[in-house]
Design a protein around this nucleic acid. Structure first.
Lengths: 187, 187
DNA sequence: CGCGCGATTGAGTAATTTCAAATCTAGTGG
DNA sequence: CCACTAGATTTGAAATTACTCAATCGCGCG
């Protein structure tokens, strides 16, 4: 049978059945409906979550009440307020569901336990972070050197599924332009 | 005696003398003068570098000939074209010296060897990546929700030494505004 | 002294935002 | 099946902001 988490991990490190069982035992499942919050500003953040099903976003609410989207997550992605999670500080962003979701949740304590006890899993998380780091650098770079038009097209080319699942105004809040401007660019 | 690299690593994991010796043996030193390149676009990237002395920047040159600065690095920081280094693809950015520099260089092969053979070092690199990931998310967020004025002030507050060492036009190229606009904001 | 680099200033231009209104779309209940 | 509604998208026009281009200023160094 296909276990998405196992497949996800085994893209990077092979696991025996026993190893995977002990990994999986540290996750808890969570189901949330559309519009429910996984994280709210000011809360402590207990988990990072692997998305089995659904679509979420992490966003910051500024003083003027505008939402700025830091990250989307769909199946096979991870999401939380990573700063608050890793540093165990109060959340500065909201994470909510854009669709009904099923998640696998891991506490920081269990994450560190996994890393300490299974070298393979520390390797896995390091590889995931490496990819995430590079992706974020590319995002910073594209915000510096690309037009909004180009960034819109790159996003569309990279994640076409995203455009089927979320309204365009959220794409605008991710790219950092007003929905009106995005609408005019998409022509 | 103070070995900066050892102190840097031991902020995260303690090492015996023998362990540090085997870590250190995998680094090579490199000295570069101001204006010399550590990485040029199109090259393969052999090393990531820990900065012992000096100041560097990683920047992208766009079609119009404008420079967009992805990262600065000073003493106790790491720099390279991380995408090209980790993925072993041709460099897309330039890295050059803003001052005379002394670097400790590590190949990807040796990095992976260290991680495979010393669990402690894989932990070290994972922790560094975690911090880097969070810092990049914060940079993305601040580019979405803060004015240039605020980002300038935050940068000044976080890295006052940077402003002593690099011309303001490079700060502008890092923040993503023209030097004229930055000059007007700094009042 | 004069050169070169960096920083500043001014004026005109281009792009994006804001605000308001109109239009479109999907889901709901009758 | 149709009307209604809420949310999403589009359009228009004015206001704001940053950009470009050009000129000037300031300063350290040969």
């Amino acid at each position: 049978m296909a276990d998405p988490l196992r497949q996800h991990i085994e893209k990077i490190v092979p696991l025996t059945d026993a190893e995977f069982a002990s990994v999986a035992s540290l996750f808890t499942t969570k189901k949330l409906r559309k519009h429910q919050f996984l994280v709210q500003e000011g809360e402590t953040v207990a988990h990072e979550c692997y998305v089995l099903k659904g679509c979420l976003r992490a966003y910051h609410l500024d003083n003027a009440g505008k939402e700025h989207i830091l990250q989307f997550a769909m199946e096979d992605w991870w999401i939380t307020d990573f700063q608050a999670y890793f540093q165990q500080t109060p959340a500065t962003v909201y994470v909510d569901c854009l669709q009904d979701c099923e998640l696998l949740c891991l506490t920081l304590e269990n994450r560190e336990k996994l890393c300490a006890e299974m070298h393979k899993m520390e390797h896995f998380f390091r590889m995931k972070l490496t990819a995430g780091f590079v992706a974020l650098q590319q995002r910073v770079l594209s915000s510096l050197n690309s037009t909004i038009q180009q960034r819109y097209e790159q996003l569309l080319a990279s994640y076409p599924q995203l455009f089927q699942r979320v309204p365009k105004q959220l794409i605008a809040a991710y790219l950092g332009v007003s929905r009106e401007t995005l609408s005019r660019l998409a022509k």
